[in-house]
Design a protein around this nucleic acid. Sequence first.
DNA 1: TCTGGGGTCCTAGGACCC
DNA 2: TCTGGGGTCCTAGGACCC
Length: 382
Amino acid sequence: MPRWILHVDMDAFYASVEELDHPELRGKPVIVAGPEPRGVVATASYSARKFGVRSGMPTAQAKRLCPQGIFLPPRFERYEEVAQKVRAILREYSPVLEPISLDEAFLDLTGTELLHGPPEKVAAEIHARIPRETGLSCSVGLGPNKLLAKLASDSAKPGGLRIVRPEEVQSFLDPLPVEDLWGVGPKTAERLWEKGIRTVRDLREIPVGLLRSWFGQKGGEALWQLARGIDESPVVPVRAAKSISNEVTYPEDLFEREKILAELRRLALLVADRLREEGFLAQTVQIKVRFSNFVTSTRQTKLPAPTDHPLILAEEAVGLFSRVGVPPGQGIRLLGVGLADLVPATFRPIPLFPDPKLGEALWEVRRKFGPDSLGLGPTGLK
DNA sequence: TCTGGGGTCCTAGGACCC
DNA sequence: TCTGGGGTCCTAGGACCC
């Protein structure tokens, strides 16, 4: 059955929300960015983009390009509020809404025609309502699948509406550069360019067998389908989290082992809090370590049973660090702790540790006598 | 110019088992 | 006496997305 998928992309979202809340900033080069020395730009207003400022660029570089820029720290709670307003508008037209981030969402309009009229009309209505009701500009794309809807809204930026009908798919795609395709990042683009493939039309001429030999079975197939605008992936309203993590880049590199371990404990307790708030247990603990030279190592371990016990998670994280070889002379610029293999806490397979003192005692014993002295078995303490 | 933070998915190699 | 083949699990790294 043919589908109609809509993609909404809020223009320069964080910067636009700042301009909405501070009207005196309107039209100025507003740049929402993390602090120097190691922060990067989250969003630059179109006025700032004229100076060459882009998302992901170091804040220090943005300041050199645009010294008169108005640099603001992000206020995610506020952006979340506005995002909820936009989502509420979208939900009026279909329950099948998939938020991609605060500023982007897919909406499946297939089969909503009897209720709301033709999808083309709905797209125009949404495109008009969002600025009217939120004060913010958005770009809207409508197409037969997510890939086309997304590319359509990209081509309409900023502030436009673009509809790609099934019969227009190939003529719409063909002139686009390959790096515009979803899943073609810098590395893949580079490899394609080396082979003389620059546009989707070029890519479409390559036999699938050759693509498979270059990019592997899955990668090759994916490129072959992308070039033809084929994308069967569904709009998924609620995605269960598969992992959660907290990581920090430090303003100055860390060198002292005690400081590093203390940070790992702190980060572990932060993710553990989120784990518990969201009602999950985790069975895998991961750490991430980035050295001064930007080389990154990860280590992970699978626990005998899922848990949300902060002390267990913290000590696992600390233990993993001993398996990381820090190259001589290298400091540490980033540390991260992640939790994966999440299961809902309602299926808690073992007795809870309700008493923090028990957690303390457990931790003490493990610290003194080693990780084998006392741990978690499938049915509790062992 | 030195490169955030939060995620997802894929690959490849080794261990282990039958 | 140097000899297999498949399946699954686990780990580390990498590409990619917003």
